[in-house]
Computed example of a mutant assay.
Amino acid sequence: MSTPKILIITGYGVNCEAESEHAWKLAGAEPELVHLNDLLDNPDQLENFQTMMFIGGFSYGDHMTSGHVFAMRVKHHMQTQLQKFIDDGKLIMGICNGFQVMTKMGLLPGLDGRYFEPTVSLMQNDCGTFQNFWCDICFEDSSPCVFTKGLGTLPLPIRHGEGKIFTLDNALLEKIEATGCVAARYVDADNNPTLEFPANPNGSLNAIAGLTDPTGRIFGMMPHPEAYLFPENHPNWDKQKLDGNLPEKGLGLKLFQNAVNYIVG
Rank of each mutant, 00 (worst) to 15 (best):
82 L>M: 15
103 T>C: 13
112 D>R: 13
109 P>T: 04
85 F>K: 12
69 V>W: 11
125 N>Q: 10
90 K>R: 13
117 E>A: 07
79 Q>C: 03
121 S>A: 13
68 H>E: 11
128 G>V: 03
106 G>S: 07
69 V>L: 15
110 G>N: 04
108 L>E: 07
93 M>E: 00
81 Q>L: 09
123 M>Q: 11
87 D>G: 02
106 G>Q: 09
70 F>S: 08
102 M>Q: 04
110 G>L: 02
116 F>L: 06
122 L>G: 06
117 E>Y: 08
124 Q>E: 09
98 G>A: 06
75 K>S: 15
85 F>C: 11
111 L>E: 06
92 I>A: 07
66 S>M: 13
70 F>I: 04
104 K>V: 00
100 Q>H: 07
106 G>F: 02
76 H>G: 04
128 G>D: 10
64 M>S: 13
112 D>H: 14
78 M>N: 03
70 F>G: 02
101 V>R: 00
93 M>N: 00
81 Q>C: 08
116 F>C: 05
66 S>D: 13
69 V>C: 10
108 L>C: 09
86 I>L: 07
90 K>G: 05
81 Q>D: 13
117 E>M: 05
63 H>C: 08
96 C>M: 02
129 T>S: 11
97 N>W: 04
126 D>E: 14
62 D>C: 10
105 M>Y: 05
127 C>V: 15
82 L>T: 09
86 I>G: 08
62 D>W: 10
94 G>T: 06
72 M>T: 14
100 Q>F: 01
122 L>C: 09
101 V>N: 02
122 L>I: 03
98 G>C: 06
98 G>L: 06
114 R>C: 07
125 N>D: 12
76 H>N: 15
118 P>S: 04
102 M>L: 01
111 L>R: 05
73 R>T: 05
100 Q>W: 01
84 K>W: 05
81 Q>Y: 12
91 L>S: 07
70 F>R: 11
101 V>A: 00
108 L>F: 12
121 S>G: 12
130 F>S: 08
75 K>P: 09
70 F>V: 03
64 M>F: 15
118 P>W: 03
78 M>V: 11
113 G>E: 12
128 G>K: 10
97 N>S: 01
85 F>R: 13
119 T>V: 09
124 Q>W: 01
